[in-house]
Design a protein around this nucleic acid. Sequence first.
DNA 1: TTTATTTCATAACGACCATTATAAAACACT
DNA 2: AGTGTTTTATAATGGTCGTTATGAAATAAA
Lengths: 198, 198
Amino acid sequence: MGRRREFDLDQALEAALCVFWRKGYEGASYNDLTQATGVERPALYSAFGNKEALFLRALERYEEQQLGFFPEALAQPTSRDVAEHILRGVAELNTRHPEHSGCFIVNGALAGSDESEPVRQALIAARAKGEARLRERFERAQQEGDLPASANCAALAAFLMAVTHGMAVQAKAGFGREALEAVADQALAAWPTNAEPL
Amino acid sequence: MGRRREFDLDQALEAALCVFWRKGYEGASYNDLTQATGVERPALYSAFGNKEALFLRALERYEEQQLGFFPEALAQPTSRDVAEHILRGVAELNTRHPEHSGCFIVNGALAGSDESEPVRQALIAARAKGEARLRERFERAQQEGDLPASANCAALAAFLMAVTHGMAVQAKAGFGREALEAVADQALAAWPTNAEPL
DNA sequence: TTTATTTCATAACGACCATTATAAAACACT
DNA sequence: AGTGTTTTATAATGGTCGTTATGAAATAAA
C-alpha cells in the first residue's frame, strides 16, 4: 500500500552513473544528480541512501552492465587473446560515450579529500579484483603451457591493468578510439608466448 | 618599504604542492593549504593569487623540481634507453613520498566539477607536451636507424605515456616501487629495435 | 617621529555542499 | 468514503567552500 514511485529505479541509477562517470564522486553534486535523473533529492535518498551508497550502487551497475567484456576475455583460449580482448574492450568502452569518456572506476576517485576515502578504497578494491582474476587466468595459462614458465604472471596482470588505466586517463583527456587501439597494439607486441618462432 | 613577508615563498609553494599532489585540485581545501603551509589565507591570495593560480604555480614547480629525469631520459643514446629511463624515473617518483604517492599531474584533476575544467586542461596540456617530446625523440631515433622504419613513433610515445599514467594510478592505490618496476620491465619487453637477433 | 606602504591575523562574505524536516498528494486496504 | 502508508515537492538545516573586507602590526622613507 502507499503511493507508487513515479520514476524508474534503473533509469535513475543509470543517469547517476553517467554523472559520476563524467565528474567523479566528489565532482558530482546533488544538483547534477537531480538534474540528470529528473528525481528530487529526497527521492534519491529514500531510494538509494546517501551519496556514497548511491555511488557504490552505480559502481555495481557499471561492473554488471559495462564490464561484460571482462569475463568474456577471461574465457578466451590463450593469454594473449585474453589480453587483446581486454585491451580492445577498454579502448571501445572508454570512447563509446563522448559525454563521459574514460573509465568510471578510474575517474571516480583517484585523489580527493579525506571524506572520499571509503569510495577511493572501493575503487581500488574493484581494480585489485580484476587484476587478481587476470593473474589467476595467466597462472592457468602457464600451467597449460600457453605461457612460458619464465613468465611473471603477477607482473603481466599488473602490466595489463596499468595499460588499461593509462588508456582511461588518455580517453578522459580526449584521445580517440584509434589512438587507444594503437596503444593496445604496442602493449600486445611484447606478449610472451611459447609459439615456435618462424 | 612596507612590512616584510614573514614566510618563505618557495617553502609555502612546496607545501601547497604536496597538498595538491595528495588530494588533487578540488580535493584540497584552503584549510588544508593554510595548515600545510603555515600561511594564512589572505597571505596565500596576495602571494599567489587564487586557488587556480596557486595550483598552476605548483604545477610549474613540479615540472621543474620533480620531472628532471624527463630531459635526462631524452638525452639517452637509444630509444629503448629513453623509455627505460622514463619508466624507472616514474616508478621512483611515484613511490618516493609515501604521504603523496602517484603523479601530481595525474592526481591533480582527472575528473571533477565543471569549475575545475581549466586546471584539467592545463594538466592535459602538460601530458601532451611530454608525449610530443617523446614522439619527436623517437622520430629522431628512427632517422638515426635506432628504431626500425616500421615503428610507429606516435604510438610508441602514447604507449609509453599510457604505462606511466597507469603506474601513477597504481602508485596512488598503494603499489610499491617493486611492483611498478615489474610493470616497467614488461613494458620494455616489447620495445622495437634494430639489433640483430641472437 | 611622523607618514606611507606592505603584511599580518581575525573574521566575515555569499554560494554551494550533503542531508533532512515538513506537509501535501497519491495509493491500497477496510 | 475513510484510514494508514508511501512518495511527492518545497524548503530549510548546519557546515564548508573559495574569497575578501577590515584593521592592527611592522617596516622604510621623509
